[in-house]
Design a protein around this nucleic acid. Structure first.
Lengths: 215, 215
DNA sequence: CGTAAATTAATTGTCTGACAAGTATACTCA
DNA sequence: TGAGTATACTTGTCAGACAATTAATTTACG
């Protein structure tokens, strides 16, 4: 069996780099993303730039109307609440099912340990292990489509977080403690408890983020 | 406020028609979908056909590797189980939340009535109101991203169903009864009961569909 | 006769260049 | 100052072409 090596087409390369720029916050909704600008800055043809933009529109990271320039999706408080509520719907049910089989994903344990290790490394550094913790839970159910759906949400969540990276929204100790509680409840098979803890965990983050983005 | 009138670009028109042909089953995974064939049959340029194909790939209705022709996504038993399990994850949590507020969506009630009305109209006719029932429940939570995720699953479910339309997999009376029970449990605020009923409802459909598609 | 290598055909990836169509802005004239 | 027109900018679509890769067919050799 030959391993499928990661060869990237030009469109994919541009898409990935653009996505990185969006998620890192160096591309904001203030500046328009025109096809010509992308094409010239990457030295590719316009159809190539167009394809990359349309891919990101499909991922809901960019928005654009017909004959209008694409822009980074602006995420107001209502979008943040929508995203986090969607997360809560997905993840609380996931926890119920994991608790039913007393499953405690190893990757989630490692990710939570990393949160403690990075305690004083700045707020932005906490985002990655936090995301990894939740992603590990989702992946543990082994459902391809659930994982796909969650990925699309995660992109938007990261988009939010870069906007408020300067604010001290994340308290590493509190996050670690709540995650730990969830893991304990999973091991104990306490489905309702785990779901409730997660709801609280996400609700707190949601409201703080929504408030920070509020006009 | 000007109403956004539904003008379709050529790419959208081709995409919509192609999607219809896929969901109706007139395009199967046996025949390859080449860019040139689409371009000539619709009398559009190849880049236009390419864009339409890539849109449908983004919707997981078509699959294709680099430098290979696109094909309708083949859905074996494992895909069916994956899809239905994802549905169960989403919908059972949705029912819990709807039950918490004793919400009984009117559209779901109407859809379930239609299932009875179409009792003897052939199996394929039952798919539409069945889908409408579940979609109504999802839409009732008022979450844009949840709705988006569910839509992508529904497309794949319909893709499955067209493959087994000849089999008598759906018993309208049983479906109606289970739906009715869910609505009653929602009204009573019985979250666990509604979730359990749904799980059974989806599990039965899933196994019958998976078995029918089994090699 | 069967297997492996080489050639050929088919398909997609990407580019250049162009024109049409729509949007938004700026400008002119009343 | 306000309204209508004119202009620049951007996207939608097309045509044509070449490169790169995959798959199939043919050929050569054991």
């Amino acid at each position: 069996m030959t391993r499928p090596l990661a060869t990237k087409t030009v469109v994919e390369a541009v898409t990935d780099d653009l996505r990185g720029r969006i998620l890192s916050g160096s591309l904001t909704s203030e500046t328009a993303v025109t096809e010509l600008e992308i094409a010239t800055s990457y030295s590719v043809a316009r159809p190539t730039a167009k394809a990359a933009i349309e891919k990101l529109v499909g991922e809901n990271l960019l928005v654009r109307g017909t004959h209008k320039s694409a822009r980074v999706a602006e995420l107001g408080p209502e979008s943040v609440r929508d995203i986090y509520l969607a997360r809560a719907y997905l993840e609380s049910e996931i926890l119920r099912r994991l608790a039913a089989t007393h499953t405690v994903p190893e990757e989630a344990v490692r990710a939570n340990a990393d949160i403690l290790a990075l305690a004083g490394a700045g707020d932005l550094a906490l985002v990655e292990p936090d995301m990894r913790f939740h992603t590990a839970l989702v992946d543990a159910v082994g459902n391809e489509r659930i994982a796909r759906m969650y990925r699309s949400l995660v992109s938007e969540v990261r988009l939010c977080m870069t906007r408020v990276q300067a604010l001290h929204l994340l308290d590493s100790a509190a996050i670690h403690a709540e995650h730990e509680l969830i893991l304990v409840q999973l091991a104990a098979g306490d489905a309702e408890g785990a779901a409730a803890t997660l709801d609280g965990h996400l609700a707190a983050a949601r409201e703080r983020l929504a408030e920070a983005l509020g006009t």
